[in-house]
Design a protein around this nucleic acid. Structure first.
Lengths: 107, 107
DNA sequence: ATCTAATGACGCAAACATACGACATAGTCC
DNA sequence: GGACTATGTCGTATGTTTGCGTCATTAGAT
């Protein structure tokens, strides 16, 4: 039933990025990682008002798209932003919206 | 089950915007409207590789968030971008990502 | 008035997302 | 080794999205 693959690859990629940002928990996680710059691990679960396993799943989504990285440090895991990848996606986003913003439409 | 409302309002708003962009058909519609600046109506259905009713539903989503407007013109409906609203959301988006981009994280 | 065309609303089925408890794994500490 | 801790994986329930056929509505054409 899913017909996403009928669209341009760049649109599909942007849609995947957007979908990853389409839940406030994931936005909160990225924000938290940006603020607590020391890349602290599972304090994330304490900060986010959701169960631990749910947070774990959101982290998995973010990792799947490459927006964050997780490094094992003994028993804990240090998550942190993958800034390069994020900037890559932001470039795609801006490229798409440049055309749209500048459409001087009168109707 | 949905716990979205447990998060900051600005994150929820950004999540709604992202969700609206999270399907390539909707991205394709916005792009099409930006290019065919004459705000033409249901040629959109011809351009998008999906059934007419499905496209109609995607248009509804975009309208619900205010990214596009639809004006009745006799039998047809002229859809067009709501650039002001789009720019509003983009500002929110940029505000959020400014903090994240500038997080100089080393891990 | 009747026919046709453009469109949205409704309803359904399949797929996907969200939330979480229970279990598995793997590192630490004694 | 055994207990404990941090974390991921699996299964499952419920909710949401996607895609589309059918029907209703409204405007224009004959």
């Amino acid at each position: 039933m899913n017909k996403s693959e009928h669209f341009e690859e760049s649109l599909q990629e942007l849609a995947r990025f957007s979908r990853c940002l389409a839940h406030p928990a994931r936005l909160a996680i990225l924000k938290f990682l940006a603020e607590s710059r020391t890349c602290i691990s599972g304090d994330i679960s304490d900060y986010i008002p959701l169960g631990r396993t749910t947070v774990s799943q959101h982290l998995k989504e973010l990792r799947k798209l490459g927006l964050i990285k997780g490094e094992i440090d003994g028993l804990k895991i240090n998550y942190c932003l993958n800034c390069d990848e994020i900037r890559e996606y932001l470039r795609l986003f801006e490229k798409y919206f440049d055309d749209i913003k500048n459409a001087e439409i009168t109707c």
